[in-house]
Design a protein around this nucleic acid. Sequence first.
DNA 1: TCTTGAGTCTGTAGTTACTACAGGGTTTAT
DNA 2: ATAAACCCTGTAGTAACTACAGACTCAAGA
Lengths: 147, 147
Amino acid sequence: MKKLPSTSDFVTRGRLAAETDSNIETIRYYEKIALMPAPRRSESGYRLYGDAARRRLRFILRGRELGFSIEELRSLLSLVDGGDYTCGEVHEMTVEHLENVRTKINDLQRLERTLANMSAQCEGGEVPECPVIDVLFGKPVLGPLEK
Amino acid sequence: MKKLPSTSDFVTRGRLAAETDSNIETIRYYEKIALMPAPRRSESGYRLYGDAARRRLRFILRGRELGFSIEELRSLLSLVDGGDYTCGEVHEMTVEHLENVRTKINDLQRLERTLANMSAQCEGGEVPECPVIDVLFGKPVLGPLEK
DNA sequence: TCTTGAGTCTGTAGTTACTACAGGGTTTAT
DNA sequence: ATAAACCCTGTAGTAACTACAGACTCAAGA
């Protein structure tokens, strides 16, 4: 069935994607934006990835899961690549990111209250009028809408 | 200073943007994607917006603030435009959206715990090694990382 | 050996919801 | 009269991918 080629430890792009649960195109994209280095190629031009590439890709994917932007990861990786990073630098970026996440949570929670409020006004009958629409049109509603 | 032209009740694009606290280009964008109808024009070709347009734009902007996607708003507006919407239809969309928001909040909260955990491991000394980096490289950490 | 199907290559376009020009015409204020 | 501040159009850029199209390569079965 699956017969993805592999030369010793080196795997092709599709195989690497499968191993890391990522999309094959994403890997090429990371190479294009120079987040991943250009790998060596087989005679016929196929990309071949070794263990360093695998580890680096996992790092990036995990970072993305944790909501770091590509640019944040680029910084993080340049620190690691340089080998001269200090825990302080990394910590700072993490804390800043954490603050962004917390802000986003707060925003969404306010949003949630407003939506819940809106939807509670109207339990969805067949009436051709709806408090939700009224709210969107800016009409005042009984329940306070947090701003 | 500012003397944005207005013919009777009708205002130009820049004026409408100012009134609604939106970006002038956004208005043109909404017209392009047919979320806003093409307005009438002055002799020289300037767009002129009346009160209906103003209300509609406010509706859209408020909806966007509440996290509705353009496509959701398009549906909502088509219900309104048709005039034959029922509260039930609108309610359904709102509840669905609310669920998306709640899911997003949960995801972010898990993320927050992980990040807080990571950053707590390392208080940011000058040591050239960092638990945050270790986590990203997939090394096991003491505190449990929620998945 | 030939064929077939899966895998890979490249470049490019599409996604979401805007925002930012560039190069021109128009209107208003001084 | 002239400059400043508008507006017009079309196009490109943003973030982070994803999805093609058309061509090449590789491995396995008949």
